[in-house]
Design a protein around this nucleic acid. Structure first.
Length: 458
RNA sequence: GCGGCGUUAGCCUAGUGGUAAGGCCCUGGAAUGUGGAUCCAGUCAGAGCGGUUCAAUUCCGCUACGCCGCCCCA
């Protein structure tokens, strides 16, 4: 047993895990770019107030479950427990509220919460998320929800259900809370202790109570969908209509509310439906909604917003449960081995041009028998072995052997890159920059096509 | 944060108040220097600390970590 263990609720992403994470990030980030959401990265820590302001002091989680960060024993920083508040802070600090609206942002970052760990509940976990500021239109709600539905379909998550509800906006909230308070007050004596506490404050959260009897009471409560104002109703109708048009399936769940008070109008959750995940209640793999008052609450101008965030750890677990193949750890396609004894420098020299040409190349450093090196090349996942230091490979030649086809060819050193290329493909190397796709001709067509219908210039 | 149940090697799994067993993986070797097989060998363990005991991996306590239920789930 190792002397040290990872801190409670935190885990290492060993190469197999990290590869799956990388694959998922690449997929969600590429989709974000296709939808016009640009990545934003904020610090792992923020002033505690950033979270307290948004989450509200009513929420236990905001206070008790936050990791506080101290420097020399003092400080007011906390590890980020969620993504929205820091993004709002950065949005305001960078003056993005004065850039063309709406502003669409994407993130993929670790979060920390001091909650008791259980399966799929970690103290450090990863979330991807979208935030859209400056758009009050229901189309913005539709877009982030559709993004998520399409994303899950793309990666192969099928055992998932989209739940939707509307809880009205700030103007309407008092009316809704009053109506619900009046209803639940009639059952004050029947609600369990934890639930009754919510009667005083977050009345909406009574819908989240676990006690079966409480749930039965909540099931008969007035529906927020019916208590909301006309404008809210029209907004929600436009959201559901937009999803219908895109063919995104959803279920309206009258008892769906969110943990925080800053949500307005649309709330949504993507819930796992595989029996493996429903034993202990529903597990959300993504959740979000509209928060039209949040930017103002953070000290900014009145700017509407809507966002969604999803748990990466949960999603990966669900995908594994469904048997979706994950990107494996990087394996060398080519392995350089030698029967020539202590000639590691020669092997590196042989590997170098292959690597520069884009191949993934591992080198055996040892002087073990050739058989052992071949075996090792196979175990490292190589498809091709480049062999030097054997009788056939003399006088500026090497052997390029296909380990799967079990065929080989003696090749001149100068032709190794070409020969290897016949058996494995080059890796796509990322670029530091991309050409300007808006330049005429960038897409391959002739710039300034002449339309015969256009009036000729004089 | 509260309660319950757990922790034997890198992984999986036995067993025991008195020398801790096996499989996989890994490493080396054999036959051969062009292969994952086979054979032989090797490395590696009772989470940590304390207590009871002649003796503790085994019984008890504390701590760490995990799982389950609460709390909470931004």
């Amino acid at each position: 047993m190792p002397t040290y263990q990872a801190p409670r609720g935190m885990r290492d992403l060993v190469p197999a895990d990290a590869a799956a994470f990388d694959g998922l990030q690449a997929v969600v980030q590429a989709r974000a770019e296709r939808y016009g959401f640009a990545r934003i990265v904020t610090p792992a820590v923020e002033d505690r107030e950033v979270f307290l302001r948004t989450s509200g002091l009513t929420s236990d989680a905001a206070g008790k479950e936050m990791y506080e960060v101290a420097l020399h024993g003092e400080g007011t920083l906390a590890l980020r427990p969620e993504g929205t508040a820091p993004v709002v802070r950065a949005f305001l600090q960078a003056g993005l509220h004065r850039s063309p609206q709406p502003v669409r942002l994407f993130y993929f970052e670790p979060m920390w919460r001091g909650q008791r760990p259980q399966a799929l509940r970690f103290r450090q976990f990863w979330q991807w998320g979208l935030e859209c500021f400056g758009a009050a239109e229901p189309a913005a709600d539709v877009e982030i929800v559709a993004f998520t539905a399409r994303f899950f379909a793309e990666v192969g998550l099928s055992a998932v259900e989209l739940q939707l509800n509307t809880i009205g906006d700030d103007a309407c909230r008092p009316k809704i809370k009053a109506a619900l308070g009046e209803y639940f007050d009639k059952y004050r004596d029947e609600l369990d202790d934890d639930c009754r506490r919510r009667l005083g404050g977050s009345v909406l959260r009574i819908f989240d109570c676990k006690n079966p009897h409480d749930r039965a009471i909540a099931a008969d409560a007035p529906k927020t969908r019916e208590l909301i104002c006309d404008e809210d109703r029209a907004h929600f109708a436009a959201v559901t209509d937009g999803l219908d048009r895109l063919g995104v399936a959803y279920r309206v769940v009258d008892t769906l509310v969110r943990g925080l008070d800053y949500y307005t109008r649309t709330v949504c959750e993507f819930v796992l439906t595989d029996p493996a995940f429903t034993k202990a209640g529903e597990i959300a793999v993504a959740a979000g909604g509209r928060y039209d008052g949040l930017v103002a609450a953070m000290g900014g101008p009145a700017a509407p917003g809507v966002g969604i965030a999803g748990g990466v750890d949960v999603l990966l677990s669900a995908l594994r449960q469904e048997g979706v193949a994950m990107r494996a750890g990087p394996k060398a396609d080519v392995y350089v081995i030698s029967g020539g004894g202590d000639d590691a420098a020669d092997r590196l020299q042989l590997a170098d041009p292959l690597r520069e040409a884009g191949f993934s190349v591992g080198v055996d450093y040892s002087s073990r028998p050739l058989e052992k090196q071949l075996e090792s090349a196979l175990k490292h996942g190589a498809r091709v072995a480049v062999i030097r230091g054997t009788p056939e490979a003399r006088g500026g030649n090497v052997v390029v052997r296909d380990l799967v086809a079990k065929t080989q060819r003696v090749t001149r050193l100068a032709a190794v890159v070409t020969e290897v290329g016949r058996h494995v493909s080059r890796r796509v190397a990322p670029r530091l920059w991309t050409p300007d796709e808006h330049e005429p001709g960038a897409a391959g067509e002739t710039p300034f096509l002449v339309d015969p219908a256009d009036p000729k210039e004089a």
